[in-house]
Nucleic acid binder design. Structure first.
Lengths: 283, 283
DNA sequence: GAACTTTTTGTAATTTTACTACAAAACAAG
DNA sequence: CTTGTTTTGTAGTAAAATTACAAAAAGTTC
């Protein structure tokens, strides 16, 4: 656990002198990691043993050990954060920011994903007679990608990004079918209707959406992927990439569940593409 | 810079005894950060001053300072690495691995992207009379996504994932048009032909592909995104996500280049979607 | 508010740790 | 084998951290 956060948390359990130490540390932690116990004591206007006691209170072995923890906290203190692109950013800058934000959001998504739900979803998908992926707009891209993945498994799978086709398909669904409905906002009316139709017709509905939305209410299982609000550029960016990662996970779970011999299918599909490609010159 | 990498790099410039120290450190760095100089010297079967000299050679002030650096390296020293999914992985495990790999590859992609090329591409895109995105298979998804983004800019943009349409579109292209051809392998015959056709008809061809491939040779500009080879599951995974990040970057560059007033367009598009959505209850 | 207890803090001594200066060993070249 | 150079270690020194104890401050109780 990050020791700087810990100091901030336990600030009110400290005594007067200890708080002085805490303040000096928090005001410039990067200086402290290079300072001796004497230097820090002097800066905080307290005695050396007080610093030592302070360190022990934070479950470290002593001052050197404390410095080690502090150094580590500083090192991973600025991981990936959502950084908004600015009006005057250079190509260098906005490129860096977009990567940073994407990774920050993947980090977030990973934390928010519930593996039990994933497991159940994989269960359902492997047992499905037919799998459908529905999405609109940016989520259509995700559904499209899902089709690409699942199609390789040699299972009946369809994808529609057209409201009418989605409705028709939903109406024709039946027990044993799995319908995956993708929508980050979970508020797209026609998709919510599609989910509801599919459910009425006894299909199992898996929603890749945000918890607590109208769409989520219509689903049998909700795979929720948390990401930070999309930026002010009015475009879905990170949500989409997190959803794609989720598709990768479901597809991977699917292949693992189906066992080794099944994986030959994948190889076949891949090999079938060979003739459409220019050979790579092996060195 | 990561000090563990530094040690590995400079391994051959070390003397015999220094190498012993290096080996002990590399074999269990997490132990070393808690060890005294005496303990480390004993473990490596050399004297204390040798350890000290070793630290100085690595541009640290001495042993304690070295430990600090080491601690920091360890904190963010195991960043994201490509981890292959294993036969017997649990949902927890393969989920973690897929996120890790995705992030590792984004990290890689970020490093390999050349911002000058991005800048030039954005230039061309902003000046284009018409923009086309072509891809097949997994890359079709990326092209599809690009359409979604650029369509919002109110510029003539098309996307095809059908060979015939791609060919026809390429043949009909002319000077001032920009054709973006997407293929990770850069070896898909029909796509290479499409690129070549577009070029013959004086369109500017931007390739989102790997450097040195047949497709790359047909392009005016190559935006190359390095990612590790896709896993043994025979599915394109990371390459696709890196390409999507690139699309985000191009789209962002585009809006920035077009200036503030243009951004109203985006808002309009977003607002136009409102009526198709369930209202969010504001608290 | 005095007398006592408990907690907090500091002083001084001690121990541990890291570093320096110098000398011995190992190595290389002639 | 000798000379010069580099590498390594020994022993002493300096610095840093910790301990033990005592003084001071803060709380309690009557």
């Amino acid at each position: 656990m990050n020791i700087l956060e810990k100091i901030a948390n336990e600030l009110d359990t400290f005594s007067k002198s200890e708080r002085k130490v805490a303040e000096v540390i928090m005001s410039s932690p990067s200086t402290v990691i290079h300072a001796s116990i004497a230097a820090l004591a002097k800066q905080a206007n307290i005695s050396e043993p007080t610093v030592n006691r302070f360190c022990r209170r934070l479950d470290t072995k002593g001052y050197p050990d404390f410095k080690l923890h502090l150094a580590q906290s500083l090192a991973n203190g600025t991981p990936y954060v959502n950084r908004h692109v600015d009006e005057n950013d250079s190509a260098d800058e906005y490129t860096a920011k977009i990567f940073e934000s994407t990774m920050a959001n993947l980090e977030l998504a990973r934390k928010s994903l519930d593996t039990n739900t994933i497991n159940r979803s994989v269960d359902l998908l492997t047992q499905a007679n037919k799998i459908s992926f529905f999405g609109l707009g940016a989520s259509a891209v995700v559904a499209h990608d899902a089709l690409n993945k699942f199609f390789r498994f040699n299972v009946p799978v369809v994808y529609f990004d057209d409201i009418l086709m989605q409705r028709m398909s939903a109406i024709n669904s039946q027990q044993g079918d799995v319908v995956v409905v993708i929508s980050h906002t979970g508020r797209t009316k026609s998709l919510v209707e599609v989910a509801s139709l599919a459910k009425e017709n006894d299909a199992t509905v898996i929603g890749i959406t945000t918890q607590g939305t109208p769409l989520a209410k219509e689903c049998n299982i909700v795979l929720s992927v948390d990401v930070a609000e999309d930026t002010d550029l009015y475009m879905p960016m990170s949500s989409r990439i997190a959803q794609l990662a989720l598709i990768d996970i479901l597809a991977t779970g699917f292949t693992l569940r189906r066992g080794t011999k099944f994986r030959d299918n994948l190889k076949k599909v891949k090999d079938s593409l060979r003739s459409s490609r220019f050979e790579r010159k092996e060195p």
